[in-house]
Structures are given as structure tokens and as C-alpha cells.
């Protein structure tokens, strides 16, 4: 297909959504006090961006979320590689890690407030905990399922355990680790936004959404939701790009 047509087709979804929104507004299908017009929302969106009003909130959310996500990715991957590499350790810890991965981190919300207060540390810690187990588990899983023939090959040619780890196991486990990180990235944004709403915060997109809701500023609410959505989307795209750079071998 020609690129122009392909990109054109991608716009069909958003255009349709916008059209339906306009129709719903025009015909008053939904209560107008709950659904502003697309034009009003667009105007508010533009103001928020143009005046730089939303800038600090965007930055605060992004920084806290990425701090939690990145530390969870690094620590989770290291833990996973070690746990996956030592079979008894994997068997001993798999259940425990799986338990904490399955436990919704929002359940632990009171504990985070008790331990870390309601500042940055508390939110970053919550994002970290939400992400670290899924990364650990996927990394460990990647090591456990790493190609046995490759390891046998390296052993046959005399590779030490360190060499096997650096040149084979690490790469073999990398695609699975990245799958864990991609899931963790989604968790991170969700948890950060929720934490901002409930813990309270000076700045942050979640805080702004909640604040718009309390003021009953419906235009603001929709505009900030849109900004958050676009940010999440861009983060995911960026991650896919990085992933392709890192795993540039073989069929994807």
C-alpha cells in the first residue's frame, strides 16, 4: 500500500470518533454539562499547552513515573537474570514474586503513605513496586527458557560461566525482559496517575484531572485526559523504538 494511503487510513479512527462526539453534542444525546463540544475542548487544550499551564504537571508526572519505571527496569532485570540463572533460587522465589506481581499495588496504598508520606518518594516507590515484579519475572523466565543448545555450544568451546552469561544468556533473555518492561511501562503510568489523585499532590496530570473534576471544569477535565492519553501513547511508541534498537536481530 502507498504510504500516503496507509497514513490516511490511520486517521479514520480519530476522525470518526471526533464526528460521533460532535453528533452526540449537537443532538444532545449526552448531557451537555457532562460532555463539552469538541471545539470548546480543543480551545481549552490549546490554552493549556500554549500558556504552558500544563507544563509543570506534565513534567512532574513524567519524571516521577520514569524514575520509578527505570529503576524498576534495571533492578528487575538484574534480579531476574540472577534468579533465572540459579535454578534453586528460581524455584524458591517464583511463587513469591508471582504473588506480589498479582497483588494490585493500589491495595498497598495506605502502607506507602505510612512509610513514605505523601511526597514524591511515596509515588515513585509505588510505581517502582508496581513495575519491578513483572520485569523480574519476565527476565527470569527469559533466562529459564534461553536456548539450551547455545549454552551447550559455549560450554563445549570452553566458555566460563561469566562469558556464557555476558555473551549468551543476557541476549537470550533480553526480548522477554523487554516484554516485561513494556507491561511495566503501562502499569507505571496508571499507578502514577492514581497515586496523584488519591495521595494528593502539588503538581501532576492526575492531580489536575482530579482538581478539574472537583471544580466541575468539564472542558479542563477532557483536555487533560486527552493530554495524558497522548503522553501514554507517545511513551509506548518510544519504547517500541528503543526495543527495536536493542533487539535488532532475528524475526520479530
Amino acid at each position: 500500500m502507498r504510504p500516503l494511503i496507509r497514513y490516511g487510513l490511520r486517521l479514520v479512527g480519530p476522525a470518526l470518533l471526533l464526528y460521533l462526539w460532535q453528533v452526540a453534542y449537537d443532538w444532545n444525546l449526552l448531557n451537555r454539562s457532562l460532555l463539552p463540544s469538541p471545539a470548546d475542548t480543543a480551545l481549552r487544550l490549546w490554552q493549556l499547552i500554549y500558556t504552558g499551564d500544563i507544563g509543570p504537571d506534565l513534567a512532574a508526572t513524567l519524571v516521577r513515573m520514569l524514575a520509578g519505571f527505570m529503576s524498576a527496569s534495571v533492578i528487575g532485570m538484574v534480579l531476574g537474570l540472577v534468579i533465572g540463572g540459579v535454578r534453586p533460587l528460581y524455584q524458591a522465589l517464583e511463587f513469591t514474586i508471582d504473588f506480589f506481581r498479582s497483588l494490585p499495588v493500589t491495595t498497598l496504598y495506605p502502607l506507602f503513605v505510612l512509610f513514605f508520606g505523601i511526597g514524591h518518594a511515596s509515588k515513585i516507590a509505588m510505581v517502582f513496586v508496581a513495575s519491578v515484579f513483572v520485569v523480574t519475572l519476565n527476565s527470569a523466565y527469559g533466562v529459564v527458557n534461553a536456548g539450551a543448545v547455545r549454552t551447550q555450544m559455549a560450554r563445549l568451546y570452553g566458555a566460563t560461566a561469566t562469558q556464557r552469561f555476558r555473551w549468551i544468556t543476557f541476549y537470550d533473555a533480553l526480548p522477554q525482559s523487554l516484554i516485561g518492561m513494556r507491561v511495566a511501562l503501562s502499569y507505571s503510568l496508571i499507578v502514577e496517575i492514581v497515586a496523584e489523585m488519591f495521595m494528593g499532590s502539588q503538581v501532576g496530570l492526575g492531580q489536575r484531572v482530579f482538581e478539574a473534576y472537583s471544580r466541575y471544569a468539564i472542558d479542563d477535565l477532557y483536555a487533560i485526559i486527552l493530554i495524558t492519553g497522548v503522553m501514554g501513547y507517545l511513551l509506548n511508541r518510544l519504547f517500541v523504538l528503543v526495543e527495536r534498537r536493542l533487539v535488532d536481530w532475528g524475526p520479530r
Partner: peptide, 8 residues
């Protein structure tokens, strides 16, 4: 051969 090579 696929399983014994290092595609990276």
C-alpha cells in the same frame, strides 16, 4: 543451526 548460532 538456528539454535546453535548467536543471532545478536
Amino acid at each position: 543451526y538456528r539454535a546453535s548460532l548467536l543471532p545478536w
